[in-house]
């Protein structure tokens, strides 16, 4: 029954089509060229990334190395929750960080309802949109991005790309045909809604706050310029 419906619908679609060969279709698609990409908000990739994170209602902190990132996480948690509790994915990069130095006690695993803060180590950051990219798996359970009150994300300067096209290029390099992650997530801000009279409210169902910690050499003047670009 299902097969016959499939054949019926596919038959109709085939009759409406041109009957081109796969090679023909593929070469036609190639001939359309790449999509135009928007100019970045700044000539600098990191400045653009930071400015767009801020425009997306995120907060940003720039640190020079992983030790400083740990301290930044500790300070953030203390400031927000007067606590050092945190849920983090089973990511080898997160496991290798010197948490004890800052007195942070991450629980490695999946966030549960009621967990205040979740930490993800982003695979990529996209300057064009101010997004970070994660994918599901042990290293980044989906609940750590979605169920917590505050979502903290670490991203490395070297993992910033300018456009979504370049993000896909990097994603395709990482994932093999046999090893596709279940979910690839571009996250660009805290959960929000404007469904009540168009008024923007944070924390619709997911995190109320989104904090990005960028590891790498970003000068104070770059950070300042990014804030200006974001109108802050």
């Amino acid at each position: 029954m299902t097969d016959s419906i499939r054949s019926f619908i596919m038959g109709k679609i085939r009759r409406a089509g041109r009957g081109a060969s796969v090679a023909q279709v593929s070469s036609e698609l190639q001939s359309l060229g790449p999509a135009p990409t928007p100019s970045l908000i700044s000539e600098s990739t990191s400045e653009s990334f930071i400015a767009n994170v801020l425009i997306n209602k995120g907060t940003v902190e720039c640190v020079s190395d992983r030790s400083a990132a740990v301290k930044a996480v500790a300070d953030y948690l203390y400031q927000r929750f007067r606590s050092h509790k945190l849920v983090a994915g089973n990511d080898s990069r997160l496991a290798a960080m010197p948490w004890r130095e800052a007195g942070v006690l991450p629980r490695f695993g999946s966030a549960e309802n009621g967990d205040a803060a979740g930490l993800s180590y982003a695979r990529l950051g996209i300057a064009e949109t101010g997004s970070i990219v994660t994918w599901t798996g042990k290293s980044c359970p989906a609940t750590n991005n979605l169920l917590v009150e505050d979502h903290i994300v670490i991203v490395e300067l070297a993992d910033l790309v300018t456009t979504m096209e370049l993000a896909w290029e990097r994603i395709h390099q990482h994932i093999g045909k046999q090893d596709k992650p279940r979910g690839i997530n571009f996250i660009s801000g805290p959960s929000s809604t404007a469904d009540i009279e168009g008024k923007l409210v944070m924390g619709a169902h997911g995190p109320r706050s989104w904090h990005v910690i960028l590891i790498g050499e970003v000068s104070g003047s770059s950070l300042e310029k990014a804030r200006q670009l974001a109108g802050q």
Partner: peptide, 10 residues
């Protein structure tokens, strides 16, 4: 410019 969550599920 982009929504908060743009996800791709396989």
């Amino acid at each position: 410019a982009i929504t908060c969550y743009t996800s791709f599920y396989s």
